[in-house]
């Protein structure tokens, strides 16, 4: 991650991953990644990081007893 191109990629990475970067810049990034293994790894592991947090969070559910206590506190049971 020492080259000038890598630094450019880093700054645009957020928008690239979110798919909001303009097309021309995307093409530049993809061209750079084809030649730069380090940047490819950073992009892939960054995407995977976000993915893992999403998957993990989807599995977190509200425990029944917590739900009951909430409804009781709000006087909404029954």
């Amino acid at each position: 991650m020492d080259r000038q191109d890598c630094q450019h990629l880093l700054a645009a990475l957020g928008e690239y991953i979110d798919g909001t970067l303009d097309e021309e810049l995307c093409r530049e990034i993809e061209k750079h990644m084809a030649e730069c293994e380090n940047c490819r790894v950073v992009v892939d592991t960054l995407r995977k990081t976000i993915y893992l947090y999403r998957v993990e969070a989807q599995e977190e559910s509200l425990p029944q007893e917590v739900r009951h206590r909430l409804l009781a506190r709000l006087e909404l049971e029954g």
Binding site: M1, D2, C6, Q7, L10, A11, N38, V41, V42, D44, T45, K48, L52, Y53, V55, E56
Partner: peptide
């Protein structure tokens, strides 16, 4: 300025059950 990424190991190839093991979830 953003700090340069340091870790450059590609761990995407790890199987899903290892990426989301109990231990991995604690790390997350």
């Amino acid at each position: 300025p953003l700090s340069k990424p340091q870790a450059l190991v590609d761990w995407c190839c790890l199987p899903e059950n290892e990426l989301l093991s109990g231990e991995a979830r604690r790390v997350l």
